[in-house]
Write a protein that binds this DNA or RNA. Structure first.
Lengths: 94, 94
DNA sequence: GTAATCTGTAACGCCTCGGGTTACGATCGC
DNA sequence: GCGATCGTAACCCGAGGCGTTACAGATTAC
């Protein structure tokens, strides 16, 4: 279990994709083929990156869809781990 | 993009966790703290592995929650890639 | 043959969440 | 002042995870 709260993938998108290219949220949303609201929600950590969105990012910015989803998994998993103690699970194998 | 359809993580759970331990679906579901229906749906590829379920698996079988979610990502991504051509996305950066 | 167990799954309800549209207030540059 | 940008609230929709109940089929035990 990691110690630090991993950043939303949205922050990485903003700093590694939008800013270097000088793109506004509106422009990027149009290019990705989604609404401005959808992209805004991701950039501000209010939505996760769906498999489809990962593919859109991979096309638009020539990146790896897998890497975006991996970051999303790290983020989701860290938050799910916070509720680990509340789960009633019995050890079934060593 | 991978060539072959990756197996549902459920198949791996069955062959690597349940069968070696001689567990029935009913027993495993009780140990994991979920309904038999929920586990059955996963084993038969009708449901994905949620972050919470990944943690349950990691506790019960002393495995890595991350590995289960990674497999799920591979599976989801492969299926999402099948609809890649339908996405209207503009290249925004090289 | 009969009863118990295990399993998949349909039918329902509940809640979360991604995504779209519309619309508003705030901010910044000209 | 005016236009562009942005975050976000208020809606609607559909998908998906999970629970309970209930049924049918298969397997096993007696």
């Amino acid at each position: 279990m990691r110690m630090h709260n991993p950043p939303h993938p949205g922050e990485i998108i903003k700093s590694l994709c939008l800013e270097p290219a000088g793109l506004t949220v509106t422009e990027a949303a149009e290019g990705l083929g989604v609404s401005r609201k959808t992209l805004s929600a991701i950039l501000n950590g209010r939505s996760g990156i769906s498999p489809e969105m990962a593919i859109r990012l991979s096309i638009a910015f020539n990146t790896s869809a897998e890497s975006w989803l991996s970051q999303q998994v790290q983020y989701d998993l860290w938050h799910a781990e916070q509720g680990r103690k509340a789960l009633k699970v019995i050890k079934l194998a060593a």
